[in-house]
Design a protein around this nucleic acid. Structure first.
Lengths: 237, 237
DNA sequence: CGAAGGGTTGATCAATTTCAATCGCGGTGG
DNA sequence: CCACCGCGATTGAAATTGATCAACCCTTCG
């Protein structure tokens, strides 16, 4: 059973066997959560760092109107909030989407690990930069891409992220996101998401059904998304 | 003449006199750039860290269609890309909006400064967290706020940021952003920005003219924005 | 069996973009 | 000195995207 956290960091920076052991022992005791479980809520005092070992989660914010906006998806291997303990309170919540195994690492423990393992520190900082790049890409999508481009772009991003951690097949991966969740992430209505997905299916680019996404025409998908994978900064080989 | 960088960091974490001296000497020799000057372009190899000492700049991305999306505004005191030297190439550009004084700090120098001055390290990490909070707030705005709410929300953010660095008066501050730039930041058309600004003026909430923004009715502005300043994580007095 | 959640579809409505023009102002070359 | 140019702001009208409202279907699950 692979440790997705170690896998992901190893893809971002060179890790020694010792680095890997440290990361593995820090995440040896994950907790299991059901779907739709709040790991932390807006207004809570920040606690330890979360590490997703399996399952998906999201950051989200609820507006006064009751509308929800998802600001990030967390996939296996993703850690969140390296430094967040410095803040007084959370400005958003984090909730599981599927059942998930989540490890926690205290701020002190993480600090010690990064002090003693420069490779880990490098990988964590790079992961942070990638996350920021993803946030910027989301801003670009929301601001300047049409609904069909937005959906296609998100699918491209999620496919590459899934593939980077060994969760995607050749042109297919498990995408456990309901249309409501996609709508909340992309700033659209579920109704419109549904139509856009149909349009992408009819165009032959991709198909999403039963939590499984198949990319039928990668070139078409990438061009309709205007996707440039540069921002994900994946290390070669 | 105040050093806005030191001011800003001091507002985020306790800084000793020695910390301040270190920051000041690192930014003693800023360069002057004209408006609309690219500090770094998408595709460039990342260089040193930039520190804005005066003037405004923005991060931006150009899409294949030629459309531009601004993903962040940089104001005096803002530094960018603490760790960005780890990446192979920039996934976006940074351009001055007004004439600006910009200091550069090499990655090595910054590392040494943070190693030797824990207060500086704390302040930098907190600044980073605030920047991430701002990005998330932008995503929320673009996804789930109407155009008038978006504009009002951005104005609230910029006012508080300006005030935090002593650049805002009681209910007024210099906002050197053209309607085209606001449009590129908020994912709208300049035409519509114009109408929304008029609407906000007619409602008595605020007025923007000649690069100066006056808040006539703070309560109205905040409520139409649905603004919650929590995410800016400003330290108490 | 009934209810709930997720997906799908049609019809209508509203927000925003697009297109097209005009205006004012500061700079600049003749 | 002044006509001309370019940029930013402003306004109107038409076109379009995506939201809203309202069903209906299917599957799962208590």
């Amino acid at each position: 059973m692979k440790n997705r956290f170690v896998e992901k960091l190893a893809a971002l920076a060179e890790l020694s066997a010792d680095d890997r052991r440290a990361l593995e022992s820090a995440t040896i005791r994950p907790r299991q959560y059901p779907a739709k479980h709040d790991l932390i809520r807006e207004g809570d005092t920040p606690g330890p760092m979360f590490v997703m070992l399996s399952g998906w989660a999201c950051r989200y914010k609820i507006l006064p109107s009751g509308a929800r906006q998802i600001t990030a998806f967390l996939m296996p291997g993703d850690a969140c909030d390296l430094h967040v303990g410095m803040l007084r309170e959370m400005d958003h919540g984090i909730q599981t989407i599927t059942a998930a195994q989540v490890a926690t690492i205290s701020r002190g423990e993480m600090q010690m690990m990064m002090d003693g393992h420069p490779g880990i520190a490098r990988a964590m900082y790079t992961a942070q930069l990638v996350d920021e790049g993803i946030m910027r890409a989301w801003i670009v999508s929301m601001g300047r891409r049409s609904s069909i481009e937005r959906v296609a772009h998100l699918i491209c991003e999620l496919y590459l992220r899934a593939r980077a951690i060994g969760l995607a097949g050749d042109a297919e991966f498990a995408l456990p996101l309901s249309q409501v969740i996609l709508a909340d992430a992309l700033g659209m209505t579920p109704v419109h998401i549904n139509r856009v997905i149909r349009e992408l299916r009819l165009s032959g680019a991709m198909a999403l059904q039963g939590g499984n996404l198949k990319i039928h025409d990668p070139v078409k998908l990438v061009t309709t998304a205007g996707f440039d994978e540069n921002y994900l900064h994946r290390r070669l080989g």
